[in-house]
Structures are given as structure tokens and as C-alpha cells.
Design a protein around this nucleic acid. Structure first.
Length: 560
RNA sequence: UGAGGUGUGGCCAAGUGGUACGGCAACGGGUUUUGGUCCCGUGAUCCCAGGUUCGAAUCCUGGCACCUCAGCCA
């Protein structure tokens, strides 16, 4: 059941669309698109863009296309295309029939290349990449014109056709727009439209040995698809004049003409967000793959246990603006906790077991005690938990010498075992090394269920599992991938990987969980009482679940 | 020293001339069989300096800071 999405607030893009609708531009239609390049996995920054584009289409009763921007076969792979499709769908969005590929438009783009040549607006340049770079000038110094710039239309047509036919080696020539080598906007200094590159394309195979550049493909793809609002990130702002220049010369009267609008990309604390850096983490094995639960990728977040709802909520809450930003990862965590608090069933498990013998509890006796599945939702019912003479509690929930504000178990102190009984610590037993081996307690039979009629106050409530009935589980505890809130900024010219958190993953193999947990399946999410939210990892074996800690519970220990 | 952007509390972010929404974080307090949840409370005069105006975060002028652009990447 879909929850009510948070009422969306205004932003500058909606203002623009509202204005367009008021003026009946495009007959009031809104068509957006999410155009990833399949050269890596999608991350939370892409999720922001996805939510903006699909969200706008939904709000304005339009549509949003999913388009692979696959114009560079050297970097793109089928695996990435599949992951993108999977991730966008998982996030909860539907593009219907509108799945496209820029490569579908290669022939049309080529024809437009010819058209620009005929109009005298494009030419074949014979310079090497180095020469092109050397003649581009600098932001404050104009570039110099290519010798090819003065070629005749006929010669350009001939050369461009032969480029396509494969007569020239890779990198030997390009098709360039004839704009202005002295433009203060570097993007307008005769940008390259086509390069020769003999690389097999995932979709077009070896049909082409020339491939269009982003600038020549993107806007025209938008135009072909009837996109009304082409929303991208800020770094493309300087490309907008070029985007418009192509449309000025290629678009027909009366057809929808897309408008490019730029917003600030998402940055988040304690992580990195560029595909290049994420690829580096994967390639150099700092993480276990694109879907490592520590990665800010959609697949990583999914494996970590994040819900699509929480990610959409996050995207809504961070807003859309043009100012550079770095959002506190705590907000993402908050969105997840808020979602899971209401939906996740509770279980008990002890991560670091400490044996407790309840001396006055009969040997061999077992009771089934009722435990509430979710105090936030009565409808989720209850289950029973076996209780017996020997139980495990969290080692951290016992202190031999308790500080003043320590509410849990200590010698002579009484705590409530949640849903079970009040117990009081009577003795501590240590092993040869001085380590606490087990503790002894006495329970109060009159407190069954964890409540006393005599009004006795027990400040602490701890979780537990029956030793005999518990099952073994593995817990993978994750922490931030980086030790610095802004690793890219902190690294400066240096290597951001030096801020990698060596303790971002801790594996606990000796955890004990209540028997109900034996029934969980990969992907299941739940809360382990007092510890955090977890989900079941695909690595789980039958009877031995592997639990990923998605996020801890908020912890105010010592603050109150 | 070129061009294009952006500057509102620790982090996001509304506000479009009428006297600073909201969320996160933090910090107090209450409730609580999760030190969870929930509830209540606490913070800015809006990059700086001038100007226009009865009145400006919002308009004008001049500064300052930060981001982006010199791939045959997207």
C-alpha cells in the first residue's frame, strides 16, 4: 500500500513550469526525461534527479522518459543498462513504453550533421586531439581557427561521409560546429560533434565508427522525443547556449522545443558521489562491488535495507535549488527510521552475548511469553518468545561497576527483561583471564510479562534471548565509508581514499537471535529491539541469516 | 584580469517590497515494558557596504566569497 507522499513544496523549476502552463506553452504539456549514461551504477544523487523528473511528470499529469545516453561505447556496458532499469523501477517509477536510447537516433543525428554542413555550420577538422586542445585558447584568450574551417560544403560532405564509411583512422578527424573560436563561452569554440572511434556499441554493434558527442546528441534527443523541460545539473549551464544553438538550426517550426533547466546536484556528508570515484572504490576493492551496503548507490542502499519510500521522502525533503550543497546524511537516516519505525516488525537478538543463569528459575522449564510485534501498529499483532533458565543478554548491558546514569544491569540492580520478568543480578563469574564469563540472577515470578503490580519502578529494560532456543546469526555492522564529512574537499589535490574509514564494516559471527528470526528471507527488514534496523542479506544461508544493519536506533544514552 | 552561476541559523531550504515557513542536527523538559517512538520548548534580520522607499532578504550601485567551463567524457 502506497503511503501518501509528502506534499511537495515549491521550487524554481515548478515556478518555470507553472509560468509555461499559464502561457499555454506546449499546450500545457509537461514531458521530462531521466537520461543516465550507462557507464556505472546509479547513486543517491541520481535518485534526486529521478524523483525530480518523474515527480514533475506525475504532478503535472505528463510523462517522463527513461533514456540511456549511450553515445560512448568505450565506457558503457549492458550490465549498467540493466542495473539502471532495475534501480529506477525499484525506486517506484514507471516510464511505460518510453524507454529510449540515444543510439536509436544515430541515423537522424548523422543526417543532422550533414544538414549543418550544407548550411555551412559544420566542417570536418583534420587536427589531432592535441592540436584541437592547443588551439582552443583559454578562458581569457581566444582560440585559433582550424584550417578545415574554410573547406567547401562539397568537400565537407565528402569527408564526413567517408568518416562514416570508415576511411580514416580513429582520432584523425572530427566534425566540428562552425560557431566562434573567440567566444568567451568555451563550449562555443567550434565544439566537436563527431569523433571517429572504432568501438563496438552494445546496441548498434559495429554499424558505426563515428559517434556523436554529448552536446550534439542530448538536446536533439530531447527534441525528437518531444521533451518540454530538459532538467539537468548545474555543470551543463554553460552548455545551454550550445543546446539552443543546435535547436535554432535544426528544429522545425511548430514542434515542441525543449528548454534546458539546471539544478544543483546532490552531495552528502561522509561519502563521495562521482561515478568515477565510486568506480575507483569498486575497482580497487575498497568495497565489495557497486551494491556494497556502504556505497551510496541505489543498489547499495537497497542491499543495506533502505526502502524506496524513504529515499523518495529524502529527495522531497532536500528540495531543489541552484546553490551548491552538501546534505547531512543524518537526514537520509532520519527518513529511513521514520519509515521503518511504523512498518518494521520487532525482533530480539543479542549481538555480543553474555550468559545469564537465573538461579531461581526451574531447570528444564520453558515458557512462551507474548511479545508485541510493533508498538506503533497494533495490527501487526504479537508472537511468543521462549523463556528459560539460561538466557543471553548484551554484554554491554551489564556493568560490574555502574556509572550513576547506567540504567541497565549491575550487581544488586534490577532490570526488566522485555516482555519477560524483572531480574536482579546476584553474582558475577569470571574466567581465568578476568573476563566476565557469566552472571547469575534471580527473577521475580510475580512480574511475568515484565510488569509488577506493586508499583515498583524499574528504570532499565533490556532485550534477551533464551540460550537453548536461540539461533545463530551473523550481523554486519556498517559505518560511514569515510572519516571526513567531506572527503573530496578535505583531500584537495590529494587522494580522497586516504579518508576511507577502516572500520566501516564490522562482522559479528556469534550473535544469538530469537527463534522467530529463523523464518526471515533475504530482503526482509525489521528492527532488532534497542539496536537498530536490519535487513537480511542475500549471502544468508539456510538457517544462518546474515543481517545487515541498515541504521542504528537514535541513541541518547548519557544525554538525558 | 574571460564567461556563466550561487550566497537566508551547524546542514538543507521557503520567501518574488510589508516587517524571516518548514525539515534535519543540537540542546532542554514530559510520556514510555525499545536510553526507540511520541509530545512540548530553545536559535538567524537574510555575504558586506552604500542607495531607493513610509517600509527591502526581496529593487538599484559597488564590493567580497564560493562553484562551473580550456575531454575527440557525459
Amino acid at each position: 500500500m502506497e503511503k501518501e507522499e509528502r506534499t511537495s513544496r515549491s521550487n524554481f523549476i515548478k515556478d518555470i513550469i507553472d509560468e509555461d502552463i499559464k502561457n499555454n506553452k506546449n499546450e500545457g504539456r509537461v514531458v521530462t526525461r531521466f537520461p543516465p549514461e550507462p557507464n556505472g551504477y546509479l547513486h543517491i544523487g541520481h535518485a534526486k534527479s529521478i524523483c525530480i523528473n518523474f515527480g514533475l511528470a506525475k504532478q503535472y499529469a505528463g510523462r517522463c522518459h527513461l533514456r540511456m545516453d549511450d553515445t560512448n561505447p568505450e565506457k558503457e556496458e549492458m550490465e549498467y543498462i540493466e542495473s539502471i532499469i532495475n534501480d529506477v523501477r525499484w525506486l517506484g517509477f514507471d516510464w511505460g513504453e518510453n524507454l529510449y536510447y540515444a543510439s536509436d537516433y544515430f541515423e537522424q543525428l548523422y543526417q543532422w550533421g550533414l544538414l549543418l554542413i550544407r548550411k555551412g555550420l559544420a566542417y570536418v577538422c583534420d587536427m589531432t586531439p592535441e592540436e584541437v586542445s592547443a588551439t582552443r585558447g583559454t578562458p581569457s584568450v581566444p582560440g585559433t581557427e582550424s584550417p578545415g574551417r574554410t573547406r567547401s560544403v562539397e568537400e565537407n560532405l565528402d569527408l564526413f561521409e567517408r568518416m562514416r564509411a570508415g576511411e580514416f583512422p580513429d582520432g584523425s578527424r572530427t566534425l566540428r560546429a562552425r560557431i566562434n573560436m573567440a567566444s568567451p563561452n568555451m563550449n562555443l569554440r567550434d565544439p566537436v560533434l563527431y569523433r571517429i572511434k572504432r568501438a563496438e556499441h552494445q546496441r548498434t554493434g559495429n554499424d558505426w565508427c563515428i559517434y556523436p558527442m554529448y552536446d550534439f546528441a542530448h538536446g536533439q534527443s530531447d527534441y525528437i522525443e518531444g521533451i518540454t523541460h530538459s532538467i539537468c545539473t548545474l555543470e551543463f549551464e554553460a552548455h545551454r547556449p550550445l543546446y539552443d544553438w543546435f535547436l535554432d538550426h535544426l528544429a522545425e517550426q511548430g514542434r515542441v522545443r525543449p528548454r534546458q533547466i539546471e539544478f544543483a546536484r546532490l552531495s552528502m556528508t561522509y561519502t563521495v558521489m562521482s561515478k568515477r570515484k565510486l568506480l575507483e572504490l569498486v575497482a580497487s576493492k575498497f568495497v565489495d562491488g557497486w551494491d556494497d551496503p556502504r556505497m551510496p548507490t541505489i543498489s547499495g542502499l537497497r542491499r543495506r535495507g533502505y526502502t524506496p519510500e524513504s529515499i523518495r521522502d529524502f529527495a522531497e525533503r532536500i528540495g531543489v535549488a541552484k546553490a551548491d550543497n552538501i546534505v547531512d546524511v543524518a537526514l537520509l537516516e532520519h527518513c529511513l527510521r521514520e519509515d521503518l519505525n511504523k512498518r518494521a516488525p520487532r525482533f530480539m537478538a543479542v549481538l555480543d552475548p553474555l550468559k545469564v543463569v537465573i538461579e531461581n528459575y526451574p531447570e528444564g522449564k520453558t515458557e512462551e511469553l507474548e511479545a508485541v510485534n510493533n508498538p506503533e501498529d497494533e495490527g501487526m499483532g504479537s508472537r511468543t518468545m521462549p523463556f528459560s533458565r539460561v538466557i543471553y543478554i548484551e554484554r554491554d548491558d551489564f556493568r560490574e561497576e555502574a556509572p550513576p546514569k547506567f540504567f541497565r544491569l549491575a550487581p544488586g540492580k534490577e532490570v526488566r527483561l522485555k516482555f519477560a520478568y524483572y531480574v536482579k543480578c546476584t553474582a558475577v563469574e569470571k574466567d581465568a583471564t578476568g573476563e566476565i564469563a557469566e552472571i547469575r540472577c534471580a527473577y521475580d515470578p510475580a512480574t511475568r510479562g515484565g510488569w509488577s503490580e506493586d508499583g515498583r519502578k524499574v528504570k532499565g529494560t533490556i532485550h534477551w534471548v533464551s540460550a537453548e532456543h536461540s539461533i545463530g546469526v551473523t550481523a554486519r555492522l556498517y559505518d560511514y565509508l569515510f572519516t571526513d564529512p567531506d572527503p573530496e574537499d578535505a583531500a584537495g589535490e590529494g587522494d580522497f581514499t586516504r579518508f576511507l574509514n577502516k572500520d566501516s564494516l564490522m562482522i559479528l559471527d556469534e550473535c544469538r537471535a530469537e527463534p522467530s528470526l529463523a523464518g526471515v528471507r533475504p530482503g526482509d527488514r525489521f528492527q532488532l529491539e534497542r539496536i537498530g534496523y536490519f535487513c537480511v542479506d542475500p549471502d544468508s544461508q539456510e538457517g544462518k541469516p546474515v543481517l545487515n544493519r541498515t541504521v542504528t536506533l537514535k541513541d541518547t544514552k548519557g544525554k538525558n
